[in-house]
Design a protein around this nucleic acid. Structure first.
Length: 559
RNA sequence: UGGGGCAUGGUGCAAUGGCAGCACACCGGACUUUGAAUCCGUUGAUCUUGGUUCGACUCCAAGUGCCCCGGCCA
């Protein structure tokens, strides 16, 4: 194993190494990935995913997929399959260990009974408002509910009748009897069960009481024999409760470990905000290529390996942090540069006529998919003729300093074809350049001059007679602000949505692109990386998404 | 009666009492049939103040700043 393949050191691995040293789990490492099926997975979940699956893999352990489905009013099957697809796309697999917290409703209920019998839980009848008042504040202790000391038998009876559906929603709860004066508010007699007459996506109408997260998660971990239960920082305050239930029940006790969740600049990561962007139609659904969801990134053309590499690169720690989206983009470009076949496409066309090229004559060039390493094999045939499209910005009537492209009297190379010299500029009545007339040099076929002369500029082109048209989507950040959630009082992140984040163009593409396949990456030379849109493309009517533009140092130079 | 966390270049992460390092970003330069890629180089950090120690990013103390917690959400 080389230096760079060594897993990065981090505090989670330190903890696991320590456990292995002391033998706490007998050297076993078993994790779980616990999504709630109430939305699509985003890049933040990818971090959790890579930590849960990645660490287990490194230590020769296993990872379970476990849906955290304890709240039927928020969750839906719709999301279950999307989540699985995204995990598989990232390259992780849970084998046959696909579980649901709802699988454990029966054992969880039995555990609740045990705690009641030990005098550690009681049925409360406070209203939600009363419960809030009784809870106290951050700086003042709470006070005991009047139902706190009701007889065990009575609680037992009531709890069974809660399950039997005798009481309306919200009328009663089962609470753990811990300490209403605890400085940790999570320990002030937390609710274990609430009454919810709602249909659950898996258990249907079998239950009308549902366990809270705190009562379900640790025990689910325990039941599955999870050794290390990783979660985000906000659960740190819940760990004493996680531990308390396990200890009182006397069952296998996993270790909860908290780490900082991922924040990315120029986007939002909360499901609530993403949902608003979808529901208020700022974007084209959860998979809109501007979204930070995994399905959006897949649709946009981000390689799964780039996301894993990204997560690996940012590391994991306990300090709140914001990763610059530029790092993600760098890694995406880096991988695409290695894997994307090169093609030519003109997105803002300007007509070029080669006046000394015979009318009606055509020829073809064999151009490698990877000009930098033609030995890798692939190539395609590209037609060439008298009339061509070039990029409008590759011509300047009055060239700025250091401009290496086409301008009157100047010679440039048409990539892999010929040198051409601009002789004449044709304009319309408004003075807009509509066509330029050039002559080509037959002694430069393939792009090299027999006399050895050099040109500074190389531009790409497409034969006008053979070009295929395609809709091309160019994206920008959804938010121009680095931190769109960091706003002055009274402003909504929606006010800062970048309405220019999608630009729709008609591109003229070299004909081989008619064979483009969904999931395949292409570089449109000198512009960026592109992928066929899986939602809007139709046979014969391709739609391309620009995954990411090439680094543009010319644009930077001009600033 | 408050509790729990966190603090290393612009950003993210390492260094676990012994030369503060890596990546991105930035800024220069070379090369180029992609103004891409590649290559070379520059700038730049241990929150503050004390203490322990031959030696402190690391240990101790006191401060400061930021994050989380008062759902019958997860």
């Amino acid at each position: 194993m080389t230096e760079e393949n060594l897993p990065k050191s981090n505090f989670i691995r330190d903890i696991i190494d320590e456990h292995n040293r002391t033998g706490r789990f007998g050297g076993r490492v078993h994790t779980r990935f616990p999504p709630e099926p109430n939305g699509y997975l985003h890049i933040g979940h990818a971090k959790a995913l890579c930590i849960d699956f990645g660490i287990a893999e490194d230590y020769g352990g296993l990872t379970n997929l476990r849906y955290d489905d304890t709240n039927p009013v928020k969750e839906d099957v719709e999301y279950v399959d999307a989540i699985k697809e995204d995990i598989h796309w990232l390259g992780y697999d849970w084998g046959d260990r696909e579980y649901y917290a709802s699988d454990y409703f029966e054992p969880l209920y039995e555990m609740a009974i045990q705690l009641i019998e030990k005098g550690l839980a009681y049925v409360d009848e406070l209203t939600p408002e009363e419960m809030r008042e009784y809870r106290g504040t951050l700086t003042e202790p709470g006070k005991n509910s009047p139902w706190r000391d009701r007889p065990i038998e009575e609680t037992l009876d009531l709890f069974k009748r809660m399950r039997a559906g005798e009481f309306p929603d919200g009328s009663k709860t089962l609470r753990a009897k811990i300490d209403m004066a605890s400085p940790n508010i999570n320990m002030r007699d937390p609710v274990m069960y609430r009454i919810l007459h709602a249909t659950h996506h898996r258990t249907g109408d079998k239950w009308c009481i549902y366990p809270m997260y705190d009562f379900a998660h640790g025990q689910s971990d325990s039941i599955e024999g999870i050794t290390h239960s990783m979660c985000s920082l906000e659960y740190e305050n819940h760990r004493p409760l996680y531990d308390w239930f396990l200890d009182q029940l006397g069952i296998f006790h996993p270790q909860q470990i908290e780490f900082a969740r991922l924040n990315l600049t120029h986007t939002v990561m909360s499901k609530r905000k993403l949902r608003r962007l979808v529901e208020e139609e700022y974007v084209d659904g959860w998979t809109d290529p501007r979204m930070p969801t995994l399905s959006a990134m897949r649709r946009r053309g981000y390689p799964a390996a780039a996301i894993r590499e990204f997560i690996d690169t940012i590391g994991v720690a306990k300090s709140d942090s914001f990763v610059e989206v530029e790092l993600l983009e760098h890694i995406v470009r880096d991988q695409l540069n290695q894997n994307a076949k090169r093609r030519m496409a003109v997105l803002d066309p300007l007509k070029v006529v080669l006046t000394n090229y015979p009318e009606g004559q055509f020829e073809t060039f064999e151009i490698p998919d990877f000009p930098q390493s033609p030995e890798s094999g692939g190539a395609r045939t590209v037609p060439f003729g008298r009339e061509l499209w070039i990029e409008r910005e590759d011509f300047a009537e009055v060239p700025p300093p250091k401009y290496h492209r086409l301008s009157p009297g100047k010679e440039v190379r048409l990539m892999n074809a010929y040198f051409i010299t601009c002789d004449e500029v044709i304009k319309d009545a408004d003075g807009r350049v509509i066509e330029i007339h050039c002559t080509y040099d037959p002694d430069t076929k393939g792009g090299n001059a027999v006399d050895g002369r050099k040109v500074k500029g190389t531009i790409h082109w497409v034969s006008a007679a053979h070009a295929i048209e395609a809709e091309v989507h160019i994206y920008d950040q959804m938010f121009l602000d680095e931190h769109p959630e960091d706003l002055p009082e009274g402003e909504s992140f929606l006010d800062h949505f970048n309405h220019n984040s999608l630009e729709v163009l008609t591109g003229y593409l070299e004909p081989d692109l008619a064979n483009a396949a969904i999931g395949e990456a292409y570089q449109f030379v000198r512009d960026g990386y592109f992928a066929l849109d899986s939602v809007h493309s139709k046979p014969g009517k391709p739609v391309f998404n620009r995954t990411i533009g090439l680094v543009d140092s010319w644009a930077k130079m001009q600033k």
